[in-house]
Amino acid sequence: MLEIRVSHETKEALHARARSEGRTVSDIVRSQISDYIGAGDAGARAGGHIGGLAGRVKAGVATLARLPRVLAAAAAALVVMVLFSQSASLAQDVSLELDGTIVSGDRNVHSFGTEIVLAPDTPVSFPVQSDTDPYTVTVTLHSPTKGTGPVQIGFTISHGNAETEATAASPSVLIDFDEKARIEFRGADGAFYGITARARPVSK
């Protein structure tokens, strides 16, 4: 495989030109490479017919004139393919089953249970009902690796209404797929928190 880096502007220009002509980037790359090879062969033949030196000079000039355009088109196509393959290999949505208990400082117990689907680095929040100030649990899937796991799950637990809301705790946990993980901790608000989580990969 040939890998060549090009600027973002070159990649965007290539895609725009291809769309305007109703072609794909792959079509352009194949066409330019074929032209480049054909030009080299034609130049070599011409050099042999006219005595060698003058023909080789002309072929060399033609090759140099075509080279930047060929390389730019090929490089842009290769970079796009690499980026797509990397994003596809890393992107992994996860279904997360949660069961939790919050024991506040005044011994009130608040329980919750839910199942959510998390996309990488995209927080999902849900409320936990309380007789006094409400709790909000925000869950984030951090940069998962596609496959068997484990995955890192981050939690941010806030307590209070819109005017008094404050972060009580921000724990995280590593979870293997189809295994349960349990974390217990005491928040800055004095409450005791316990969360059980189970993660499963989501097929696309």
Rank of each mutant, 00 (worst) to 15 (best):
R182M: 06
V117Y: 03
I195D: 04
P150E: 10
T101Q: 12
I28P: 03
L53F: 09
E9C: 07
D27C: 01
V173F: 01
R45D: 13
A46D: 10
H110T: 08
V103F: 03
K180W: 15
I175E: 06
F155A: 05
S203M: 06
T63W: 02
P123N: 03
G187W: 01
A191I: 07
E97Q: 10
I102P: 00
R56I: 14
R19V: 02
L78D: 15
G154I: 02
F185E: 03
I33T: 03
H49K: 10
G187Q: 00
R107K: 13
A54Q: 06
G55Y: 05
F155G: 07
T145F: 10
V139A: 09
T24I: 01
H142G: 05
V94S: 11
V25P: 01
Q92L: 14
P150H: 10
R45T: 08
S26T: 11
T132S: 14
N108T: 15
E179K: 14
V128P: 06
A169Y: 06
Y193V: 07
N161D: 13
M1D: 08
L14F: 00
T138Y: 01
V173Q: 05
G100T: 14
A65I: 04
A199R: 07
V94L: 15
G22M: 09
L71W: 04
F185P: 01
D189V: 12
I50S: 06
A39T: 00
A65G: 01
V128R: 14
G22Q: 08
V109W: 09
E115G: 07
V128E: 11
A191C: 03
V202D: 00
S31R: 08
T167D: 06
T10A: 10
K58L: 15
L14Y: 02
I153T: 03
L67R: 10
G48R: 13
E184N: 12
V70G: 00
F192R: 14
S31A: 07
A18P: 00
I175T: 08
G55H: 02
S143K: 15
A54E: 07
S95H: 08
I102R: 07
L71P: 04
S87Y: 12
G105D: 09
P123H: 04
A199Y: 06
T132Q: 13
H142N: 14
I37K: 01
Q86Y: 12
A199V: 09
D27K: 02
R182A: 08
V6E: 05
G147W: 13
H49Y: 10
G147S: 10
I37D: 00
S31D: 04
R186H: 05
G52T: 12
S89K: 12
D99H: 10
A91Y: 14
K180Q: 14
G48S: 13
F112G: 13
T164L: 13
T140N: 06
R17W: 09
V29Y: 03
S172A: 12
T140L: 05
T156V: 15
G47V: 08
D131P: 11
A73Q: 04
E12M: 15
S172E: 09
P150T: 08
N161C: 05
G105W: 08
P127D: 00
I4W: 04
L83R: 14
P144T: 12
S26V: 13
